[in-house]
Each structure stands twice: as C-alpha cells, then as structure tokens.
Amino acid sequence: MRLKIIVTLAVIAGLILAWNLHRIFIQVPDEASQGAIFRIIYFHVPAAITSFTGFYLAMFSGVGYLISKDLRLDSIAASINEVSLAFATITICTGSIWGRIIWGIWWTWDARLTSYFVCLLIYFGYFMLRRAIDDPTTRARLSAVLSIFACVDIVLVWKSIEWFRTQHPGPVLEIRGGGGMAPGMEAPLWWNFLALLMLATALVLIRTRQEGMRREIDALRRHAHAF
C-alpha cells in the first residue's frame, strides 16, 4: 500500500516536472532583463518553500512525539528534516548559480542568503546531534526539543538579518507583495511547487520506512545483547 503511494506520487511528480520543463524551456520567453538564466527561479523558489514547509511540519511532528511518545512521529520528523535539508541545499545551489550569472559572484553575504545558510547550519547540527545519541528514545526527545528551538530561531534569524541592507531580489510573487510575474510565466512555478512537494512526500515516505526498519534492527540488537 505504502509502496503504491510512493510510486504514484513519484510518477505523477515526474510527469508534471517533464511537462513543466517543456513549458519552461520552450514556451516561456526569456525574461526581459535577466535573459535565459531567470528560469532557475522555477526550481529555486519551489525548493525553498518546500524546505521551509518541511522544517515546520517536522517541528509539529516532533511536538507530537513529545506528547504521544510514539517513535513513528520521531521517524517522520527526522525524515522530513532530512528531505528539507536536501531541498534547502538545492535552493542554495540554484541561487548560487543564478548569482554567478547575474551578480557575477557565487556568493554574497546578502540577507536571505545568510539566513538560509544559518538555517542549513542549524539543521546540520540537528543531524549531528541525532547521530551522536545511541538510545532512540533520548534521540527522539532531544531532537524534538532542538527542532522547536530551531523553528523559533529561524524566524528571529530571518528578521534580524533582514534589517541589514539586502542585495537579494525583492519578493517576486504576488502573495509576498511582489509585483507578480507576467501572465503565463507564473503558472509553471506553481506546478513545479506541486511536483516538488509530491516528490518530497515520496522521499519522506521512503525515509520514514527506513527509519522504522532501523528502529526494528536496533531493538533486535538490544534483545540479542541483553542475553
């Protein structure tokens, strides 16, 4: 059942992505000032939104663990965070490529880049902590707490860094108070967002299952060691 869901999600996501690639590269015209490279936004922005959605969902899953003590919720939280970290890395990489073309530099300590980098570091810490704890129950407890701290901190990091002068292009999408994109240019972005979200869900399901197996192996090992 779970396998079917995973396959279905992945296949649909793949189809949407393929169809979208066609639209993005063939149908959508070059942007007036940036030229061809602007197309990277179709992956950059959806990946960013997906990663943040993930970090917060993972926090709720962690809080759920603290309330219910059900280790499956911890597995879900860890899986979501891992996939979100991957998407955050995609965001940084695509942004960096874009920056090389438009700004002429791979990296600048602009507000949003810096904030994103801080988020990455915080979640590297999350996985470092998880790896260092042997007992799955303690691991679940502490990573849930760290997740709460991280999610609260992200908001503060974002706000405080934003108060420095920003080099990053302002909000593009209408919902964030940007001017919006030309008609026909914005639709593929939302489709891509949907596709990446489905892909992320499929990945999370796979990772959750692996985590479940890992718990089982750990329990078996403890059984074996106990006697």
Partner: peptide, 22 residues
Amino acid sequence: MTVNLRLRELMLPTLIYPMLIP
C-alpha cells in the same frame, strides 16, 4: 542536551553559534 554525548565539547559550539546569530 549534550551532556551525555561523546564529542560534547565539539558539539556545543557547532550547535549554539548558528542559534545565537540574532
């Protein structure tokens, strides 16, 4: 949080500096 971990001396700075940014 890190008191019972191996490597806690390394873990602490790596965990807290990003958190302390604001």
